[in-house]
Design a protein around this nucleic acid. Structure first.
Lengths: 251, 251
DNA sequence: ACAAAAGTGTTATCAGTACACCCATGC
DNA sequence: GCATGGGTGTACTGATAACACTTTTGT
């Protein structure tokens, strides 16, 4: 297969199947768990017809896996690759794109109103994303304070959040939302943001520090106007070697 | 919308989107966790071209939710409705239906080789299913001893099993695989089947009996040639009232 | 010296684990 | 009376939960 052919194949979109991405970004300074949304705006003869936000997503190409579609969509929006990615659910209700606004919007687009979307979420920290001059008017919104959202994307975000809640209790994916070097309190704040609960600091500290894959660094925070705290890193290697599948039947 | 219209709409298939169902059935007598598969057989001029098993599945209709498709597929195969159902993953690799056998099979069928399938699993007990004169040649196979399987359905079964393993540790879905009245040892045997581990009987007993939603009945087994054991039932009501989301960060 | 957040210890309770024998029943 | 699986108790260990004050730093 020559390059030209490969390129031309790549451009065949499947018109009724898309991938939508819930991009979670943690802002360590404001301690806010955010979602990256893009602007949807349409006006006609001075009337604003559509003015809200949606998830980023795109058609699946004929010769592309679903995972590849998700990776491509994230790259186009943020420039990032190799972020944690999870396919969590497909959404395919016949009425999912049939509100008045959605139909208006779809008129100008290539995709069907009867589209099934495979939803992914990504985990990253907001600092890694530059939103300067992005063509989509992408913007971070706190999960707790979302704007007006189009299609069925509010539901998709909600289900992504539910899945994240469960998953972050069972696997160390929380570190995907943090910078490489973090403090114990950062991790606690983030758990509290995701789960919406309060955690006892002393017990949490002890528990986390006892994990062998949480490694203290010979470094402290700099440039903070308070006692600088100890920095740690997460070792995926050590975690995987331990293979800590605790078969606790918690039903 | 009149009935005729509704009926005719129902028959519009989406040709590149399907739902596949992994039907898990527990056989309490043989203590075997089984999967329900249907025969795929094709011969031409005396040559057997295709002879293996696949999951049951079907196209999504245009005016149908994904959940409804799954429910319909299960009903057509087993006559059952209202069984536990979980959408666990979408499979959409471009090469998922492109083996030689699969292409031969698809020739006679209405669906595309580039089909995306949304996979569900169902939980039930084998006793509830009658396989007398079923048109699909459906048959139970132990998960540990599967036959030759077509399409990418072996992978789908494997991932369903992984999801079930995780989910049965976190939620009381295990009782969906058992009859209404069961013994403590039944539950233990089933956990052992699903997880592939051995569990200490005394500890397991204590743990389970202490759950408020495990209710002892004034009944014992009958017709067994040994000491008949105490029967219990699971109370979903009590479970839900307790709302036992133990936020244990187990990472 | 003050503000702000970091960091620290003890006790009580609960849950998990390891382990071996007697019991009730149907045949 | 014997084979079969049902059912039982204890001691140890480790984890969790509740709880309030001192320390370190930058300004």
């Amino acid at each position: 297969m020559n390059l030209f052919k490969k390129e031309s194949m790549k451009l065949e979109k499947i018109l009724n199947i898309s991938v939508d991405c819930v991009v979670f970004g943690y802002d360590i300074n404001s301690k806010s768990l955010n979602v990256l949304l893009i602007k949807r705006y349409l006006e006609s003869k001075g009337d604003v017809l559509v003015d809200d936000y949606v998830l980023t997503g795109y058609h699946v190409y004929t010769h592309e896996t679903l995972d590849d579609t998700a990776t491509r969509v994230l790259k186009e929006l943020t420039g990032l690759t190799n972020q944690y990615k999870k396919q969590f659910k497909a959404f395919g209700n016949p009425d999912r794109l049939t509100s008045e606004k959605d139909l208006l919007w779809i008129e100008n687009e290539e995709f069907h109103s009867r589209t099934i979307t495979v939803a992914y979420y990504f985990l990253l920290n907001t600092e890694d994303v530059s939103l300067e001059d992005n063509k989509n008017n992408a913007k971070w919104f706190p999960l707790k304070d979302l704007p007006d959202i189009g299609f069925d994307h509010k539901k998709i975000i909600k289900e992504a959040h539910e899945d994240l809640k469960i998953k972050c209790l069972a696997e160390p994916i929380i570190f995907e939302l943090l910078p490489d070097k973090f403090t114990i309190n950062d991790v606690q704040d983030l758990y509290e943001s995701i789960l919406g609960i309060e955690i006892d600091n002393r017990n949490f500290r002890r528990k986390l520090i006892n994990k062998k894959y949480i490694i203290p660094l010979n470094e402290k925070q700099v440039g903070v106007s308070k006692k600088p705290s100890q920095l740690y890193m997460f070792s995926k290697d050590i975690y995987e070697k331990m293979f800590e599948k605790n078969y606790l039947i918690n039903i």
